[in-house]
Nucleic acid binder design. Structure first.
Length: 414
RNA sequence: GUGGGUGUAGCUCAGCUGGUUAGAGCCCCGGAUUGUGGAUCCGGUUGUCGCGGGUUCGAGUCCCGUCAUCCACCCCA
């Protein structure tokens, strides 16, 4: 093999495209029902945008970006996520002056230079939504509800929603110091490396699997240190989730790796928990718009990993049934191809047509029609006045005058 | 970035402690039979045994390196 795909990328072949499209369409329909409108942003942006939005110290920025310099000397980066781009586009297109809440949804490839693993790719695909312009907890609930609904429609029966609040800056300043003190008091249990990391971002310690659940249990919880406004917001989210019957658990250890999150953060799982099993993640980012140079504008977003959803799709909803062409046009000899094209054109008015131009024997072509699961095989020869019309599904054969083919197909279709 | 597993025909794999011309099933191609539907029978093609080096009289088999892939850590979708 002379060329192979770059590491961490994958091809989606016709064998799996039906499943992909099913997942994409299900999310698109859910977005529509909830009033989210599509937006598409460039696949690369100024490197600065991601550094500012995602966080200069975040893992994504420090070691996972595909960054390159173009011929004009600009530093550009293949998008590792889409929220930053959407906010940039929101501001650049003056959408903050369109009034009201902007509900936007997207779909497309993202890029992170990570070591490939089950459910983890260097080019992967996300669908996502951003609701910009309201701090209401109802909006948090709406977006979680949307995801849960889409996943259920795809056949996931036990959708597991984890929510937490990481608070606003006011809460975090308070909490950060308390957590840091707790970590320092346990420094004997930590490696130098870890200590340095957690001094920078103490919340991250909850992500570290090297420490036992029991150890983390003993650490102070951010939910106990939320300022009143944050507390009220989070209570609102939980109460309303309950009122719309979205089952969830408050995961006190849930934190997220992107720096822009404030208040509500959440992750959604489709069933069994394993290493890379989060199907969807998201949260509120009330300060990002302002940080990008816009007016003070609260917002919340989510994104779902298509690869993970497609791979975890319940067996019952995999729709493996391959549908063959409606008509299979067989050429009796190579000189029949011109008339076969004419026949195919007529038949396409009534259904999909596959034209066999292999030059093989009629019998072999008919066999191929069966293998392809065609419903009708039509044999055309170079000059004869009739074509042979084999209804493979009904097991009936007929001779049909070439001129009467359209009428015959129309009648058969009824 | 760290650790472990794997790498033999298009696909799934076999190949014992290194030994002569590298195999099976499926797929594919051709033929036969059946008034022709993925049926049955017969026949056939396909491999630089991931790549590079080393040990050896001899390497698919052992060693080193490299690449790819899978799994876990890390991180996240």
């Amino acid at each position: 093999m002379k060329y192979t795909r770059p590491r961490g990328t994958h091809d989606i072949t016709p064998l799996e495209i039906a499943r992909w499209q099913r997942v994409e369409h299900t999310f698109q329909r859910a977005f529509e029902r909830y009033g989210y409108r599509g937006i598409r942003t460039p696949i690369f942006e100024s490197t600065d945008l991601f550094v500012r939005a995602v966080g200069a110290q975040s893992d994504i920025v420090t070691k996972e970006m595909y960054t390159f310099t173009d011929r004009g000397g600009r530093s550009l980066t293949l998008r590792p996520e889409n929220t930053a781009s959407v906010i940039r586009a929101y501001l650049e297109n003056g959408m903050h002056r369109w009034g009201g809440i902007q509900r936007l949804c997207y779909e497309g490839p993202m890029f992170r230079y990570d070591r490939p693993q089950a459910g983890r790719y260097r080019q992967f695909h996300q669908v996502g939504a951003e609701a910009i312009g309201s701090a209401s907890p109802a909006l948090d609930v709406e977006i979680i509800q949307l995801v849960v609904e889409a996943l259920r429609e795809l056949g996931f029966t036990s959708v597991d929603v984890r929510v937490n609040s990481v608070g606003t800056e006011a809460s975090r300043v308070r909490y950060r110091q308390v957590l840091l003190d707790a970590i320092e008091s346990r420094r004997a249990d930590l490696t130098e490396d870890a200590l340095a990391r957690y001094r920078h971002n103490p919340l991250r310690i909850f992500d570290a699997k090297e420490y036992s659940a029991a150890f983390k249990e003993q650490l102070p919880r951010i939910s106990d240190y939320l300022v009143d406004d944050d507390r009220v917001h989070f209570d609102g989210v939980q109460n309303m989730l309950a009122s719309v019957a979205v089952p969830f658990t408050h995961d006190v250890q849930l934190v997220r790796g992107l720096d822009y999150y404030t208040r509500t953060v959440f992750e959604v799982y489709g069933g069994e928990r394993s290493a890379q099993s989060a199907l969807c993640g998201g949260g509120r980012y009330d300060t990002l718009v302002a940080e990008c140079g816009g007016p003070d504008t609260p917002a919340i977003g989510m994104s779902a990993g298509l690869e993970r959803i497609v791979e975890a799709l319940p067996a019952t909803s995999r729709t493996p049934e391959e549908v063959g062409p409606h008509y299979y046009v067989v050429c009796a000899g190579a000189d029949a191809e011109a008339r076969a094209l004419q026949a195919a054109r007529i038949l396409r008015e009534f259904g999909s047509v596959e034209l066999d131009v292999s030059g093989r024997s009629v019998k072999t072509q008919l066999e191929a029609a069966g293998k392809k699961k065609a419903r009708v095989a039509v044999v055309v020869d170079a000059a004869g006045p009739e074509v042979a019309y084999h209804d493979l599904a009904a097991r009936t054969d007929a001779k049909v005058g070439f001129a009467a083919l359209r009428e015959f197909a129309l009648q058969s279709k009824k």
